[in-house]
């Protein structure tokens, strides 16, 4: 069977999806990146390999997410696309007439507005990552809860408290005050969900024309408290698609299928790469006062790629050598 692989290396999670020729998901995996993207990709491929029935043939690979360059160099991707495009492609694949996509990931949040399946507007959070998944993670950890317990708690709330959501530092101190006043944890958690949604709609969703059908995706969509808060704030039904946590990878897989249609052979390096030993190192280039941090990727002690230099003098040397 011919399959297409999508890899989404995000700040919090690394996701892999396999689709068939009809864009049906036949395998998906959600892993924590834990600050080690290379290991996450390798262990993801390893789990995929042990699951895959014999006779599967990877015909194309797509990479997306903030670590997409790194992923593409390690696995050999046919297409490297930004998260917005990948998410939009996947959303249309799941709900063909979707109008608005709310996406909250580990470190960024975005809104995508579509018009007949084509992105007509989008926005991403600016410099600040307030109210994204990593903040929820931190708060759950601070309360001594797993993120799953944290999510479930919001549903038990009877009277959500109001929490300042504009800045995660303020939100945290506000939460501590509310705890010390004696509010129940579930009310605080639900209040936090509402604050995040308020902040999202004021910030990322500012001036955007949100219309039904609305999809909510990204890792944070696992949290039903946020879904309910969105539904209340917007007065609309919110759809969380089946593959909500791996939509970026799904989009990348679909884009890979489209990309290899014009190519003779996939650039995929094969599953043997799992056995390669990847190492990265970095150095500060002293060539000019910009002091760029240049990163080097080694596979089995051979230099494979470099990036991070503004002037591309290091990148060029390696590209010439290969």
């Amino acid at each position: 069977m011919s399959v297409f692989l999508g890899i989404d290396v995000g700040s919090v999670s690394t996701n892999l999806v396999l689709i068939n020729e009809k864009n049906d998901v036949i395998y998906s995996l959600y892993l924590r990146t834990q600050g080690r993207p290379i290991e996450a990709i390798k262990s993801g491929l390893n789990s995929m390999l042990s699951y895959m029935p014999l006779g599967i043939d990877v015909k194309g690979v797509g990479a997306t997410g903030s670590g997409r360059q790194l992923a593409s160099m390690i696995v050999g991707a046919d297409v490297v696309k930004n998260e917005i495009t990948a998410h939009a492609v996947a959303a249309v694949n799941q709900i063909p007439n979707v109008h608005s996509v709310l996406e909250i990931g580990g470190q960024d949040s975005k809104i995508i507005i579509l018009d007949n399946g084509i992105v007509s507007d989008f926005a991403m959070n600016t410099v600040c990552a307030a109210g994204t998944g990593s903040f929820l993670d931190q708060q759950a950890a601070r309360l001594g809860l797993t993120i799953q317990e944290f999510a479930a708690l919001a549903l038990e709330a009877k009277n959500p408290v109001r929490i300042a959501g504009r800045c995660s530092v303020f939100a945290e101190s506000d939460m501590i005050h509310k705890q010390q006043l004696g509010h129940s944890t579930s009310d605080i958690v639900a209040g936090l969900c509402e604050a995040l949604v308020r902040n999202y709609l004021n910030n990322v969703g500012k001036g955007k024309d949100i219309k039904s059908p609305v999809i909510f995706q990204g890792g944070v969509a696992a949290n039903p408290g946020i879904k309910i808060a969105f539904a209340e704030a917007l007065g609309m039904e919110i759809i969380v698609p089946k593959h909500y946590s791996v939509m970026g990878a799904l989009g990348a897989a679909i884009l890979a299928r489209e990309a290899v249609a014009h190519k003779e052979k996939s650039s995929f390096l094969g599953f043997s790469l799992i056995n390669s030993d990847f190492k990265t190192s970095s150095f500060e280039c002293k060539g000019c006062p910009n002091l760029c941090e240049v990163i080097e990727l080694f596979a089995d002690n051979t230099l494979k790629a470099r990036w991070g230099d503004k002037c591309s003098k290091w990148t060029d040397i390696i590209e010439d050598a290969i």
Binding site: S66, K81, N82, I84, T85, V119, A123, T126, V127
Partner: peptide, 27 residues
């Protein structure tokens, strides 16, 4: 909308530019 500050990582700005370019081109 792009907001700049002291961060030197260019990944964020590149993603936004690329996505915006894709959007406009498809339109």
């Amino acid at each position: 909308n792009l907001t700049i500050d002291e961060h030197t990582g260019e990944a964020g700005i590149n993603t936004r530019i690329e996505a915006f370019y894709d959007l406009l081109k498809r339109r």
